[in-house]
Amino acid sequence: MADANPLQLSLYHPRGCLSASVQALWVASASESHAVEAWLPGDIGSGIVFNLTNTIAINQQPFETGVILQPVSKDSALLAMPAGSVMAGMRFHPAVGYGVMNRLCDTPTPLVANTVFEHALLSLFKQLSASTGPYAKMNSLYRWLKIHLRFSEQIPPSLASALNALSLAEGLNPDTLTISQRQLERQFQRWLGVTPKQAARILRVKRTREALKQSHAPLVDIALSQGFSDQAHMTREFKQIAKVTPYGYVKRVRGRYSE
C-alpha cells in the first residue's frame, strides 16, 4: 500500500531579528518505502542544505551527505530523494546569501570549509545528523542562526529598496533611484548574478504561483492580474522559469497528479 504522503515537510518562518534575513527553516524526509521527487521553485533566493542520510540529486547532479550551498534560484530545480532520505536547510531572502557567504555559486556546490562561519556549518551538520525528529532539527537550525548568522557585507540600501519594489510588483522608477541605472545593474549582478529585468521576471512568476494556488479564477484573468499581456505570455514566462505550464502547476498543487 502506497504512503499517503511520501514526503514529510516541516517549515518554520522565523519572526523577530531573523525574519529580515531568513525566509524559512525546513526539514524534509522521504518515507522508508518510497523515493520522492519535488520541484524547488525559483525566487532569486539562495540557501544552505544539509543532506543527512542518502545521496540525493538536484537536476540529476548527485550529492553525497554533507553541506550544499544553493545558488541564487533563477528557475525551478528538480530534487530527487531516495527512500529514507532526510534533509534540512535554511532559505535566505534575496541577496542575503551573498552578504553572509561573500560569494555566489553558479550551481549547487558541496561546502569546502575555509572560514570560521563555514566550519561552523560543518559542526551544525554533525549536530543535525545526531538529532532525532524534525522538531529537534528545526530547533538546532534556529539556535545556530541566532548565534552565527552575521553579514560579512551589508546589502546596499539602493539594492534593498529595488528588491522591495520588485517583490511588491511596483517596478523600478528611474526618477526615484538613489544611484544610476548602471550602478544598480552592477549591484544586482554582484549580489544576485541576475539583471534587474531578470529579477523582475522571476519574482512575477513567483507571485503568479501564489495566485494560482489561492485562486480558482480563469487563467486569463490571473494572467492579466499579474501584469502579463495575455494568457499566452504568462504561459511562456511561467514554463521557462517554473518548468511547467500554469495549468500543469495548478493540477500539481491541487494533488490531481504527481510529476
Rank of each mutant, 00 (worst) to 15 (best):
I68T: 05
M90L: 09
G89V: 07
V96Q: 11
A77G: 14
I58N: 05
G47I: 02
V86G: 03
Q61Y: 07
V96D: 01
A88D: 08
G47D: 04
D43Y: 04
P41Y: 06
H34W: 11
T53V: 10
I56S: 02
D75A: 01
S46P: 09
I58H: 13
M81K: 10
Q61C: 05
I48L: 11
E37P: 04
Q60H: 15
T53W: 01
A80G: 06
A77T: 09
V49K: 00
E64C: 05
P62Y: 06
D43E: 15
A35W: 14
D75R: 15
E64T: 09
A35E: 13
S73K: 04
I56V: 13
I44W: 06
G89Q: 09
T53D: 13
F63I: 13
P94V: 13
Q61K: 15
P62W: 13
P41I: 15
I44D: 00
L40A: 05
Q60P: 00
V86C: 07
P41W: 13
M87A: 06
A57M: 11
G45H: 02
V72R: 05
N54H: 14
A38T: 15
A83W: 06
P94N: 10
N59R: 12
T55Q: 12
V96G: 03
A57P: 01
S76Q: 12
E64W: 04
N51R: 02
M87L: 15
G45V: 10
V72Q: 08
G66H: 02
P71M: 00
V72W: 01
I68L: 12
S85P: 11
E37G: 14
P94W: 11
P71D: 08
P82A: 06
H34N: 07
N51W: 12
V49N: 03
F92M: 12
S85V: 01
T53L: 02
T55M: 01
V86H: 11
E64M: 08
P82E: 05
I56M: 03
L78I: 10
P82H: 08
T53Y: 02
P41F: 14
L52D: 03
L52W: 02
V49T: 05
G45I: 01
G89I: 01
A83G: 08
M87Q: 10
I68N: 00
G89C: 00
I44A: 12
N51T: 02
V96K: 10
M81D: 10
V49Q: 00
L69E: 14
G42N: 08
G84W: 11
Q70R: 07
Q61G: 03
V86W: 02
A83I: 04
V36K: 01
V96T: 04
A88L: 13
M90Y: 03
P94I: 12
D75T: 04
A95C: 14
A35H: 14
